[in-house]
Amino acid sequence: MATLEIRDLHVAVEDKEILRGVNLTVQSGKTHAIMGPNGSGKSTLAYAIAGHPKYTITGGQVLLDGVDLLELSVDERARAGLFLAMQYPVEVPGVSVSNFLRSAVTAVRGEAPKLREFAKDLKNGMDALSIDGAFAQRNLNEGFSGGEKKRHEILQMELLKPKIAVLDETDSGLDVDALRVVSEGINRFRASGDTGVLLITHYTRILRYVKPDFVHVFAGGRIVEEGGPELAEKLEAEGYEQYTKASL
């Protein structure tokens, strides 16, 4: 049973305050959707939790099972059980997918996986996400299509088995088929055990495939409304306009 607790989180980028007091608790077994208009600070929340150097924490805490993640380096946070599926995964020339994945799995598990087991896990994971086998030998994210990048993020999540996964607009730029494959991956991951998901999205479309337990509306750098899945339907019908006006 894992708990991610975000308490009164304030974050700035180059002296500009983006997050203004975010409070949110995610428990394993639950999926929270964070929805909001562009520029509301959703991605900032994701990257700040993960520890991207561009974001300065100006106040608050982020606790994973009582440990303050903000005190840890980026890699320590990942090894503590946090995962961030990125909206725009970077291309890293000369680093192969298989080499990268093996290094990551070794780091997170604290020991190198047995080669045969790792190869099997990798193959199963790739098959489940309809990723071509040749992909493992390609350079990390280099020349990947948008859909391939997102599927590769989900593959990493399934291999690393985090306690809490933050998915930053994993649905953006996907066609319906790719969205279905990615959603199935997320659902497999959710069903696999004790794990919590923070699903950040602009659109309600993915919520038809990945059913959230809670929906939070983000605007102006904080959560402005919370509810169950029915809140997503309301957003679908009414859009974000009322919130963007309210936050001004």
């Binding site: 991207h52 995964p89 080499n99 290094s103 780091a107």
Partner: peptide, 18 residues
């Protein structure tokens, strides 16, 4: 470096990989 570290790979090793 951030991407590799975000997958648990320590800084020194991330640097070496890159």
């Amino acid at each position: 470096i951030f991407y590799l570290q975000a997958r648990g790979i320590p800084y020194d090793e991330a640097r070496r990989l890159v």
